[in-house]
Amino acid sequence: MLPPEKLNKHAIANAFLRREYFVYYVFILTLLFFTVTLHDVSFFSVTNFMNVIRQTTPVTIMAIGLTFALAGGHIDLSIGAVVALAALVAALLLQMVPVPVAVIGALMVGVAVGLINGLLIEWLKVSSLLITLGTMGVITGVARQLTNLESVPIIEPSFNFVFGSGSFGPVSVLLLWTLGIAALGYLLLRKCRFGRHLLAVGGNEKGARAMGISTIKVRIMALVLASSAAALAGLLYAGRLHGARYTLGEADLLTVIAAVAIGGTSLFGGRASILGAVIGSWLMGLINNGLILSGFSTNEQMIARGVILVVAVAIGVKEQQK
């Protein structure tokens, strides 16, 4: 039996090594590593960090949305496709209607896809993996069909400013979007009844049902949030690129899943962290940025990114098993 002071030390050490803190340590270590190795190329500068934020924001927003779906025990593979469709819808609507209407129209794409996903999963009682794989195909096809693969430019300055290209001094509007959506996500998950119900449903569905929680409603809402966040990510891509094309978001799905998983959210429901998803996505962006600045070739970057991911996930899982 350990003496009380030793027990205390163990408790403190265990608290610091908790799974949910893991992503922050990796983030800080990565930051320190690149700061030291890239001290001669302005890695540690406001400009570069703003670059990372700017490039990562759509992924961060999608990661926050996906956190809700995963918390409820579902995965949503259609989010990458929603990004492209929402961006194209916004770009097309902007040629006909005022900015707010176009934005609402694009966000409605996300709401509609989330509802369809949710209703199909809950009514058919089929795995979310399969249903969203199917809807991903449908949405990708619709996005390609919508403009016959042509990109659609956006020349509306107010839209471009608000949704990606604007900045206040050195601070990009995309940082404000990240902070705003992260705060909203945190409040929803941690401070609202919906968040508590969602975690209960994801952790123990039978128990949640026994407590009188409408598990179907909660899970559908989580999928609507995931899709709506993807639609917002589409708007942010469109604003930054001053246009939309059917390929937007197609490469993001795996990055988003990795960011959420590294951030401490369980892929099987019941445990979720909004802040972890944000830091997880920033970590992915930071690694990407650091590797490019390091002058690695594309192949070397892929290898390094893969190794870092495997190590990060492996350490995280080990910690969880303890």
Binding site: V41, S42, N51, T247, E250
Partner: peptide
């Protein structure tokens, strides 16, 4: 680059360096 989505990060880093 291998994917079109990578070029934004590459250009940002290039201009910074």
């Amino acid at each position: 680059f291998t994917k079109e989505s990578e070029t934004s990060s590459i250009a940002s880093a290039m201009v910074l360096q």
